[in-house]
Amino acid sequence: MTTKALTEREVKGAQPKANKYELIDSSRERGAGRLVIAVYPSGAKVFAFKYQLDSKRQYVQLGRYPSMSLASAREIAQPLAGMVKQGIDPKVEIEKAKTKEEAELRIEAKKGSLGQLFEGYTQQMQLDGKRTYKAVLAVLEKEIYPIIKPDTKAKDVTVDDIKSVLGPIIRRGAAVQSNRVRSYLSAAFNYGLKHDNDPAKIGSDVLFGIVFNPVSAIPKQTAAESVGENYLTFDETRELLNTLENREGFKMGLHVAKLIQLCFYTGGQRPYELAASRWDAINWNEATLEIIADVSKNKRAHLLPLVDSAIKILEQLYAERDPLNPFIFPHRFDHTQHLRLYSLSQSLDRYRKARPDAKHFVPRDIR
């Protein structure tokens, strides 16, 4: 065995023998261990750090040659030699570092994704009795996931990410929708901020690790018309209702069109309360629709009188109803769900684009 400093040429040229042998890279410093390269009969060459501590010989494998160069092996071996000189066992320290890294990786793996944040937030909405939790989740999934993937760690979402979501919504002329999405995002991140410190969540499999709300730095679009200050004139209302009968020049489904009409014919009833109502809530003999507590915004059930124009719409929908779906306004694909309000917003967007001279309004302005 050689005891002089090795060269890259010697390492590269070392040939296998019948038995394993080692080449030693001398550091000319006693008691600091040695870098060696073991040459196996198979031709494999492996760098290792050998040392003796407390009369025990130890061996730490560093890496295979040529994936690890001689220079890299020396760089790794240098701090290990320093430990030996101080009486510290490198093998023990390496094991400690490995254990710490594995623990940090486990903690990192538990930090929740954006998808888990949205699921947790809307589940909390459901527990709090908020009726719109499904609609909120649907809006977040529709508006956010095309820009920020759901498996993104929630803690890694930045202010610029949020701007990249809201910007396109504003540019398509939906400032009100932008404010709504901003509000949902802000509430979701506030939920995440509190989640990790909630005593009720001790032992939770998910920790978000959020340190600030990235939405807080982004202003609302104050230029968006405030609900309650915008309304349609009688002529504009008449034009809209007539247009909904044939829906020429823009794309709008039958159920969305009838929902808008029914909102008018029920005196400005909230779109969600109608969309989430079931057929068994209608009393055809007394011409009433019961808005049940679970659907009502104020959590109080109430009866809605139905005028002839409203009855006519409901009779038309009943004749074409999906027997597997209990809702008056069924979801297009899911037999267990009702129509989502973002379908209503999208349809009104298309209506306004087809009529650029029409006044801008949103579903809530119908009230």
Rank of each mutant, 00 (worst) to 15 (best):
T3I: 12
L6H: 12
E10A: 15
G13H: 15
A14H: 10
P16Q: 12
K17V: 03
I24Y: 14
I24T: 12
R34L: 11
P41Q: 13
S42H: 02
A44E: 06
A44Y: 04
A48H: 08
D54I: 06
D54S: 10
S55D: 12
Q58W: 00
Y59V: 01
Q61L: 07
L62C: 13
L62F: 13
G63M: 08
R64Y: 14
S67R: 15
A77G: 11
P79L: 11
M83P: 04
D89F: 02
E93W: 11
E93C: 06
E93H: 03
I94K: 14
K96S: 12
K98D: 08
R106S: 12
K111Y: 09
S113I: 09
L117M: 11
E119R: 14
G120V: 05
T122F: 08
Q123G: 00
D128H: 04
G129F: 09
G129L: 01
G129Q: 11
Y133W: 14
K134V: 03
A135N: 13
V136K: 09
P146S: 06
K149W: 00
D151S: 00
K153A: 08
A154C: 06
A154Q: 01
K155V: 11
D160G: 12
D160L: 14
S164A: 15
V165T: 07
L166C: 13
I170T: 15
I170D: 12
A174C: 05
A175P: 05
V176I: 08
R182P: 01
S183Y: 04
Y184P: 06
A187M: 09
H195D: 01
N197V: 11
I202N: 09
D205H: 03
P214V: 00
A217S: 15
P219D: 14
Y231M: 11
L232Q: 00
L232D: 01
T237V: 10
R247F: 09
F250S: 04
L254V: 00
K258L: 09
I260F: 00
L262E: 07
Y265S: 06
G267E: 02
Q269D: 04
Q269S: 15
Y272G: 10
A275T: 08
A276C: 09
W279V: 09
W279A: 10
W279K: 03
E286S: 14
E286D: 15
E290T: 15
N298K: 03
H302P: 01
H302I: 05
P305C: 04
L306K: 09
D308S: 06
A310D: 06
A310V: 06
I311M: 00
K312D: 00
K312V: 01
Q316G: 14
L317N: 03
A319D: 13
L324C: 03
P326I: 10
R332G: 13
H335A: 10
T336Y: 02
Q337G: 04
L339T: 05
L339F: 05
R340G: 11
S343E: 08
L344F: 09
L344K: 07
R355H: 15
P356H: 00
F361T: 02
V362A: 04
R364H: 04
D365K: 01
I366H: 08
